[in-house]
Design a protein around this nucleic acid. Structure first.
Lengths: 152, 152
DNA sequence: GCGGAATAGTTGAAAGTTCTATCATGTTGG
DNA sequence: CCAACATGATAGAACTTTCAACTATTCCGC
């Protein structure tokens, strides 16, 4: 490879800030959720299911929504099923398909935990940013998102 | 908990954009590194060591620098040691201490891979942002970083 | 200098993730 | 119609991360 374009100081700072913020933030949110016996991944599943009509979602769609492999989701749902938070139901339309469905307990857990989790996200992220910064963040990240999604 | 302050649309968009970008980006960088037989975590260790005088670092310092538990780092270094990228050396000053040291092969790997990794970071992140956006990102994230670090 | 607390690091088992193979069902072109 | 290919989902093995316990050393107060 011909002489590479190394990152400038500004570029490097931004990139490293992103990485560091993400790691520390996830760690913190994880600690905060842990009091409710949930992991960040568990919570993400609960959010996605609870936002859907019927509080259910096809496995593949849920995998796409949460940006993880089908296999990983399958294991994840098995664990949450064991914990009583979700169940699997056969899909009547497509007999290959399966729904992940929020149980009563899953829904109750979601309602109980959500306020604390939102507070957590505020305390450690959202409330430390101005409205302009939040807008700027979205503006900056959306094209990246489009780019990355286009790569599959 | 009294009625929680749910996230506004703007807040939610920014937050979710951050999460989605991070996941997709790490996945992509992982794929790009995979061709060199490295994981993102391997690479992070290599960067940190190669930036240090003597290409060595105390285990604890390296754990802090890469924001991970000592235990996790210990396993990670064991794997990289098995792969020939690093070695452990006793610390003469503090007999409890251990250095992680880049091997010749580790350093060579770093030099070979870095240009491609930087290109990757450019293609999927840095070059999709303007200079202003990069500055804004750093400005936004640094206070969050300080806040999170202060929590330990 | 001695006993207790703190620090540095490792270990092994359990929990979680990734990778690859597999099964069942669906879709499509001849 | 039916063979071939595509899709939805899961299972198990291999690998990585977490958690708790442990060893060895250093620091601190008396």
């Amino acid at each position: 490879m011909s002489t590479p374009r190394w990152l400038t100081t500004t570029e490097q700072r931004a990139w490293r800030a992103h990485l560091a913020v993400h790691k520390l933030l996830m760690h913190r949110l994880g600690i905060d959720l842990q009091e409710f016996g949930l992991s960040v991944n568990d919570y993400e599943i609960l959010v996605n299911l609870s936002e859907c009509p019927g509080k259910r979602m096809r496995m593949s769609d849920l995998a796409d929504a949460t940006i993880q492999s089908r296999s990983r989701l399958s294991h994840q749902i098995s664990r949450m099923e064991a914990a009583g938070l979700v169940t699997r139901e056969d899909c009547p339309d497509d007999r290959r398909g399966t729904f992940a469905v929020l149980t009563e307990e899953g829904w109750a857990t979601m309602q109980r935990v959500a306020p604390y989790h939102v507070a957590s996200v505020r305390d450690h992220f959202v409330d430390l940013l101005t409205d302009d910064q939040l807008e700027a963040l979205e503006q900056a990240y959306n094209p990246i998102l489009e780019h990355l999604k286009s790569l599959r």
